[in-house]
Amino acid sequence: MNLERFKNIGIGLGFLLIQITLFRHLKIFRMQPDLVLIFLVWYMARKDRTSAILMAAGLGFLQDAMLDFWGLNMFSKTLLVFLGYNFIPKGSRARLLVGQVFLTIFVASAVHNLIFLGLNALIQNYSAEIFFWRNFLGNSLYTAAVASFIQLFRTK
């Protein structure tokens, strides 16, 4: 395992930590962004598919462990990375526009939340607590907005 991979794992854990301690509480009308997902999309754009899948599974597992969801995030994120990897623009040296970032993250987040909710409905676990549209559209939009915000202030 090279240094860069360590660095990426560290960044991923950092994102996870920030998500769990901070962003999870920045709710607007009970909607919350998913910083881990933003990191995974960024990671997909830079690394190979296998690494991205493993990173998604690892971070998803840790997120589940922290939030007591056990498997839900791991499943959704792994499947999202597997399905969406080929659709993410890669190796582009040009800085993406905010609109592009928003749209990419929104679609990724929507797919992720759809998988999450579908799985959730399937296991009949949290369906009573979760309002479908709020989680599907609300969380996706919020996540995309946060990603756009990060893109605005990101330096090369």
Binding site: R49, T50, I53, L54, A57, G60, F61, D64, A65, D68, W70, G71, L72, M74, F75, T78, L79, F82, L119, I123, N125
Partner: peptide
Amino acid sequence: KDHIITAILLVIAVALMIGRYQGGLNNLR
């Protein structure tokens, strides 16, 4: 390779979902 890894990981995730209330995982929780 990716398909196999994904499949294994998804199976693990489903196993976690199903077995969350069982002994070993409960301790991990």
